[in-house]
Design a protein around this nucleic acid. Structure first.
Lengths: 367, 367
DNA sequence: CTGTTAGCGCTTTCAC
DNA sequence: GTGAAAGCGCTAACAG
């Protein structure tokens, strides 16, 4: 048994049954040509006539269109793609290592934006499943000429996935990750603004003892937020004790986080407010607080980042800095299709502004 | 300007710039043939050699494989699809009318299952964006020969989308919707079991005054649950007053629901428990109860159906009947790929069993 | 304005 | 074992 490297595990058909062509033979241009008494090329021109405007007489045109619609003609996308060398399809690659729920919530919002943006530009979406399943996705499969470009959502910064795509010479755009490679377009959130919005809110309420809990320092976004927080605190001369700084938690490991977060509430002078680098951690913080009898927001204010769907469903509802994930996906699709079609986009609004959503998890500190 | 019917809005390239082929010309079989001193056909046989086992000598085989890997050869999927008449790709169609958040949460879980199932069978996923965006999706675009079959997730029962697919003679499988057309495979939840699990739990706690709130009677699932509830209550001789039966709410219309649900708590003998046909309504019910000062679960028990991500994040956490959405998507992908490849699947476990997840929103009624 | 022709990259049948 | 050739369905360049 011999397989090409990029081919996924193929089902074993040990029977003498060849994979009997399952698709019905569909109507082709030549059939329409035959039935309408013209020739293939005329039909082709009529049914997508991009440039040659008046190549066909109106009568034949009408006849062809009629036949095409009664026969329910749909162009064969494989043939067209093969010929045109582009497919009006964009690939999407998620970095769903382990497919954690938080990632799902986040990614689906981005995906909806991408779908919307792609649709308005007339593109379809292809999800490469091997890449989806494997944490360390390889770019190779994307060179199969089925997509005109790829959106990389939160690509793994530790891997060489982005350079691999670049060397593929396939147009790409990055979401939620600053461009590491010059010339590679990206869409990201303005992290210094994220921190500023959250912190201005907390200090306006009167908080000074503020702790930070962050989801790992491996990701660009997380680093920027962690650093931004510390810079902000220092510039205001606010206390920055090391045990207030839990910057390297793993959002997936809620058990170990529980003890870490619980410890945060047990120190001599506990914080009156906590800034979490994402909503998932913020929600974990609220649950830990409740289990320890610390009431939110009376005794502890909690602010998250993201505004995932679940943020509005907790009790109390979470105050958070909203990332417009849909818009970010949308923007990414737009940039990508612009690039594909050779349109020069000024790469203008690729740094997206966050907004503060005040709900119920923050209040003035009790003293 | 003339466009074929199924083509989405194409970007206007009013400039004299033809859509300059954006894809780099990739290595082809003939290049490998040239560099390895053999012929195209030999290369083809080596790089996917399904049947012709010993057609090529080991030495040439090795040489070809070396050249292919140094050149980073990736087969052109368009050419292959055109030739083979199948693409190892399945389409997915969601019924995201209006893209409500509840649908997102639900659909993404199913999508993850589909992706997983497709991946293990060696298939990719194509999302048709027009269909995704338009509430009334049309099946026509799916006849473009890019997919070997389609998963329809919760198809709109009022439309003729399913018959349209059937007449396309494209293999399909339905998720979350009983087959209307004989011979069309489907995956669905066992609704009578859903009701039984919820009701046995509530009656075991001692509840007798139980109300039902349901998300519309347009969908098969919702009808089955509503009817199942009434049957259950009657068979136990439990009270079934009409004002306990709010079977036709629209989960998207949380405003009008609020008054309806609020009214439910204001009747002379209010229910001590509420069964909601999905978690979204259950969460709305809890929010209404809280705003009226009715405490859950002390004064009112609430049970949902689905176990969406948000169910574990509410306060109190929602007791619910879990639909294994991932497994359902997975099963659907499996059935579809089996069908595509002509494998007879006994259509065995296509009715999925629900499980009860007891959390905090249910308790014995106070009397 | 119409018709002919040559391929896109890959697979497969058939002759050598 | 290996080579030549045809063709999947569509498009684009050319000649009529």
């Amino acid at each position: 048994m011999n397989r090409i490297p990029t081919e996924p595990t193929e089902p074993n058909l040990n029977e003498e049954s060849p994979p009997e062509t399952p698709m019905r033979r569909r109507v082709t241009l030549s059939e329409i040509a035959k039935q309408s008494g013209t020739h293939v090329m005329a039909v082709s021109v009529v049914l997508n006539g991009a440039k040659s405007n008046t190549r066909v007489s109106d009568t034949t045109r009408k006849r062809i269109q009629e036949v095409a619609s009664t026969l329910n003609y749909v162009p064969n996308a494989n043939a067209r793609g093969l010929r045109r060398q582009h497919t009006n399809t964009i690939g999407v690659l998620f970095n769903w290592a382990g497919s954690s729920t938080i990632h799902s919530l986040y990614s689906v919002a981005v995906l909806e934006g991408i779908v919307d943006g792609a649709a308005t530009a007339g593109y379809h979406i292809l999800l490469y499943t091997e890449a989806w399943k494997n944490a360390r996705a390889s770019a190779a499969g994307f060179a199969d000429s089925r997509t005109d470009g790829v959106v990389l959502v939160a690509p793994d910064e530790a891997s060489d996935i982005v350079p691999a795509f670049v060397s593929l010479e396939l147009p790409i755009v990055l979401v939620s990750s600053a461009s590491v490679i010059p010339g590679v377009p990206y869409v990201t959130i303005d992290n210094s603004n994220v921190i500023a919005l959250a912190m201005e809110h907390l200090t306006a309420l009167g908080h000074t003892r503020i702790a930070y809990i962050g989801g790992g320092t491996g990701r660009h976004n997380m680093r920027e937020r962690f650093e931004g927080f510390q810079r902000w605190m220092r510039s205001r001369n606010l206390p920055l004790p090391p045990h207030y700084l839990l910057g390297d938690l793993d959002p997936g490991e809620s058990d170990v986080n529980t003890t870490a977060l619980s410890g945060l509430l047990g120190v001599a002078e506990p914080p009156t407010a906590v800034l979490a680098s994402n909503d998932d951690l913020a929600i974990q913080m609220m649950q830990v607080a409740r289990s320890r009898g610390v009431s939110v927001p009376e005794q502890l204010s909690v602010v998250g980042v993201d505004d995932i769907l679940a943020a509005a469903l907790t009790t109390p509802k979470l105050t958070t800095v909203r990332q417009p994930l849909f818009e970010m996906g949308n923007q990414a699709a737009r940039i990508l299709t612009d690039t594909i079609e050779g349109r020069e986009n000024a790469n203008a609004a690729n740094v997206i502004a966050p907004t503060l959503v005040v709900r119920e998890s923050t209040a003035a500190p009790c003293r």
